[in-house]
Design a protein around this nucleic acid. Structure first.
Lengths: 109, 109
DNA sequence: TTATGATATTCGGATGAACGAATACTCGAA
DNA sequence: TTCGAGTATTCGTTCATCCGAATATCATAA
């Protein structure tokens, strides 16, 4: 029974849990999963003001969830680690299963 | 390229991301992974006031991450879905790998 | 039914993000 | 070196959530 040090719990919280605990940032991660994008394109895609996207990207970059590459005046953002998608998709499946237990269905057919 | 509806993003955020975005709740989930526990025992284990633990458990219960069973006056809490541990462990590994990229190591040896 | 251990809830204050708006910075072309 | 497109930052406000303290509720034994 491994007791996880509180320092590691805090790192986990600050760097990952906290980072994905914001709907807009989840949207950003899914968008970048399709393809790397620059800030303006991302802002247009998510119909969100550019400073808002830029702030969220800064948070994701500080947590090392995305990396950047310059392309002239533009900055291309891409996912650092595809496992973040595995995590989000697992959560979605858990959510579907939990809703099913309550006989509620997403996208019923 | 599946575009995820904003409603599902919000459900994901409210029910799962938000729920694990708190160090004490992560500790609780790991503790319950070892074995089901009642509130008082959990409070003692995590050296945290009982009302604090109770409030966090209420949040986890509302999100269906834990379930309860009565045992006399006590209430036993247990994990609903072991996949939450898979998620947390994957995050820990991502964190380790990210730190390694910066030549920082947890538990060096 | 009353007392006790166990759990849940409420209140108030404090803290932490998020946002809109405005603006500052950066890069490269001319 | 100046301009414009692209990106980042700052400020002030608002809103959500956490906690400690106190207390209420619940279940069972006597």
């Amino acid at each position: 029974m491994p007791v996880i040090p509180i320092e590691e719990i805090n790192l986990l919280h600050n760097n990952l849990c906290q980072a994905i605990s914001e709907p807009k940032r989840i949207q950003i991660l899914y968008a970048l999963a399709e393809q790397p994008l620059n800030v303006t394109t991302l802002a247009a895609l998510l119909e969100t003001p550019q400073p808002t996207i830029s702030r969220h990207l800064a948070i994701l970059r500080q947590r090392a969830l995305v990396t950047t590459e310059r392309d002239g005046a533009a900055v291309i953002y891409r996912l650092t680690d595809p496992r973040i998608l595995t995590i989000l998709d697992t959560m979605r499946q858990m959510l579907r299963d939990a809703l099913e237990r309550q006989s509620i269905t997403l996208n019923p057919e």
